[in-house]
Design a protein around this nucleic acid. Structure first.
Lengths: 244, 244
DNA sequence: GTCAATACTTTGTCTATACATAGTTACGTA
DNA sequence: TACGTAACTATGTATAGACAAAGTATTGAC
């Protein structure tokens, strides 16, 4: 094939605190998103690109690597760097249901069912929890439709304001208190709802529900939060992506 | 804290085809796994490490970066590089249920329910499929316990041997034909089983099931496989991990 | 003793360059 | 025409060194 490399315009600001490699990565990403670079297009080769931009090759490589890691570009030695098909875009964020709903333009609602403390042995799953935990139970709805019962457990050193919880997501509250999220483990299953759950969520009995148990750890691997959530199967699916 | 950096032994082989940075990454990983480096331990700083090993700093940085990306190490400027807590280990492989079961020491069994062709409009989910597809329906069991009904759709250019499918996983078959997996999208939900599903899986009615719809794409973003799977909720949960 | 300025440590960013290696294309010989 | 070889292209690996910036520890003035 006689596919010629596609050039794109980059404005690098050497006075900016944003690293050059990241500026370049953003520029390439932008070119892909605006359609200047289309799926299957070849990028300029690294030496030509760096000559054009006045960068060193490792700098450009770092930018490209960033996008390769995110699954937007593919490199092949001897061939070049290509833009992958668009549907493989990865969303590797750790988001709260609240933010997800808001991002979709739906109106999230929260009713605080209970807010108390509990001891670690009441929480089954991840070992090595602090002895005392704050327990939150919430009923989450979207556009007025009841969606899920969320039960969260967190270390007592976080302060949880019940009123704030009804306005925003738990994760923003924790982030505001300096929590950083890095690694989450999820275990997703299903079962029949209990009678209480069915009543709370407004389902006829028998009804299936999606159960999600999630544990979140920070930068250093320290425990941040764990939770057991019950979703109405008729209203919710969990989407995950995996880049190897 | 007076925590002194922990040294570990590395055997680098410059004649090996394995890149030095990867050899070093493997050595650090091994030191962590054998307990030479324990959670919270600080690594030697990069300059000292490279001096000791006779490497250039970028090479060592690349090795460390590899492990940081996998969530095993944390770097902090001005502080150093630390080993994170062990439970945050990430398993980011794209595995088949067959391999997962085998890895757990359980005996996977497969009964081929049907193997035929179908047209793309019979497959709801990912747009842009080739017009004709091969359809496979299997009943998967573990240690003799029926576990799931697996329905897969793949491009017709793969040859699928029914007998081989009962001996091994679909993914090994595809890999053997040169398929590479890079990106998978999964949508996980739940519902009540249909009467047929309950009979096939040996569940009393009503029963809940976990539904997984997975689409897999290769290096270049080209379509490899998509499938709809129904698991007995009483026997199965999906585990996923997420590193931000 | 308290607190701010300073020095030090360690990772972050960037440049410049050299050679290795995989994949593709073109060529020349049988 | 067929096929192996050579040339070419583009990424992969590795080196060496310089300066920036964040975080910690020390010092010094009040």
């Amino acid at each position: 094939m006689e596919d010629t490399p596609v050039a794109f315009d980059v404005a690098l600001d050497r006075t900016s605190p944003v690293p050059l490699y990241h500026q370049l990565a953003l520029a390439i990403e932008h070119a892909i998103e605006t359609g200047v670079l289309k799926p299957g297009d070849r990028l300029e080769n690294e030496v030509a690109l760096t000559a054009r931009l006045g960068l060193a090759r490792p700098t450009a490589r770092q930018a490209i690597q960033e996008l390769v890691n995110r699954g937007m570009l593919v490199r092949k030695r001897g061939v070049g760097t290509q833009v992958v098909q668009p549907h493989v875009r990865r969303e590797a964020r750790l988001t709260s249901l609240f933010d997800d709903l808001a991002a979709e333009g739906r109106v999230p609602g929260t009713e605080l069912l209970s807010l108390d403390g509990c001891s670690a042995d009441e929480v089954p799953e991840p070992p090595g929890l602090p002895p005392r935990l704050t327990r939150i139970r919430r009923l989450r709805s979207a556009d007025g439709v009841r969606l899920a019962i969320l039960t969260n457990y967190l270390p007592e050193h976080y302060t949880v304001d019940g009123a704030a919880l009804e306005r925003t997501g738990l994760y923003s509250l924790l982030r505001a208190q300096g929590a950083s999220f890095r690694i989450a483990h999820q275990s997703i299953g299903a079962r029949l709802m209990t009678a209480e759950e069915a009543t709370l969520l407004g389902e006829e009995h028998p009804a299936a529900c999606v159960t999600v148990r999630r544990s979140v750890y920070d930068d250093t691997g320290a425990f941040v939060e764990t939770g057991t959530h019950v979703y109405r199967a008729s209203q919710y699916t969990v989407r995950t992506s995996l880049v190897v």
